[in-house]
């Protein structure tokens, strides 16, 4: 009896191992090629945002020459702990409804310009989003403009955007010359039996020469290549993602052209929680 029993365990172990092997990532994906971790912020120190990595964008965009941050957004960005802080291992970016320097709302926008910039690689963050009409959270990249180039020539890679009245949908987008703003190249992903505001999801891209792969959790849901840009713009668009390093931006906008303004049912404050930001290169 004993012997038979042991053999059974061995058999089960074998089956289990095979199942595990069966779960391995499909080798045709390029996920594994960026495995050298070069930036990691796990937001582990309460109350401290690491300023060796992050800058704050302040204001309503007027000082930057783009009032409403170019999208008629309604918030005033601050660097107050009310709008951005670290608690319990998470970066919290909080949109509040309050009169502040002529705006009705405050929020925060953190970016890594001149502190961390990189061309190509795997950029990912684990995030729980806010919800409600008018919320516009994003995890995105902008191209370095130190050579004097201006948007959209510098390029923009929106790794994850969401509008708060669509709690199961995110979208990944690229902007460049010939395909910017409302003409950008974008794809939606809809979660089944899950939401962006009740659970954390990992949002990321793998970006290499002539491709950007978009994924959420373990689902690769889009690949954008120069051919796609050609197709979408009838040959007018220019692939600008082999040109320069990009920096990271995390923000929660309120209102603006894309989501529209908050309404009476929008609950404030609303917080985006970021568990980590990680960047890999080859």
């Amino acid at each position: 009896m004993k012997k038979i029993f042991k053999n059974r365990i061995a058999a089960y172990t074998l089956v289990f191992t095979m199942v595990l092997l069966g779960c391995n990532t499909d080798e045709t994906q390029t996920v594994a090629t960026f495995d050298n971790l070069v930036l990691e912020d796990n937001f582990d120190i309460d109350g401290v945002i690491d300023t060796t990595i992050w800058n704050f964008d302040i204001g309503d965009g007027t000082a930057q020459g783009i009032p409403g941050w170019g999208n008629n957004e309604l918030q005033y960005y601050t660097d107050r702990p009310d709008n951005a802080t670290v608690e319990n291992g998470f970066l919290l970016i909080t949109a509040k409804e309050e009169a502040f320097n002529g705006a009705q709302y405050t929020s925060a926008r953190l970016q890594t310009k001149n502190k961390f910039q990189q061309q190509y690689g795997r950029f990912e963050a684990r995030i729980r989003l806010p919800y409600g009409q008018g919320m516009w959270p994003a995890f995105w990249l902008l191209g370095d403009d130190s050579d004097g180039s201006i948007w959209p020539q510098i390029g923009e890679i929106d790794i994850m955007e969401n509008v708060g009245d669509e709690p199961t949908q995110i979208f990944g987008t690229v902007h460049g010359p010939g395909y910017s703003g409302a003409e950008s190249v974008s794809k939606n992903y809809t979660l089944e039996n899950s939401r962006v505001d009740t659970e954390f999801h990992v949002y990321g891209i793998e970006w290499g020469p002539n491709y950007i792969n978009y994924y959420i959790d373990d689902v690769l849901y889009n690949q954008i290549t120069p051919e796609d840009i050609d197709e979408e713009t009838n040959g007018q668009g220019e692939w600008v993602f082999n040109d320069r390093p990009f920096y990271i931006i995390l923000n929660v906008a309120v209102g603006g052209n894309l989501p529209g303004p908050p309404n009476s049912e929008t609950e404030f404050p609303q917080t985006m929680l970021v568990d980590y930001v990680r960047v890999y290169q080859q």
């Binding site: 919800y131 709690p167 089944e192 939401r195 009740t198």
Partner: peptide, 10 residues
């Protein structure tokens, strides 16, 4: 049903 999307109870 268990929709998994009924959220933000108030």
């Amino acid at each position: 049903e268990n929709l998994g999307t009924v959220a933000q109870p108030r």
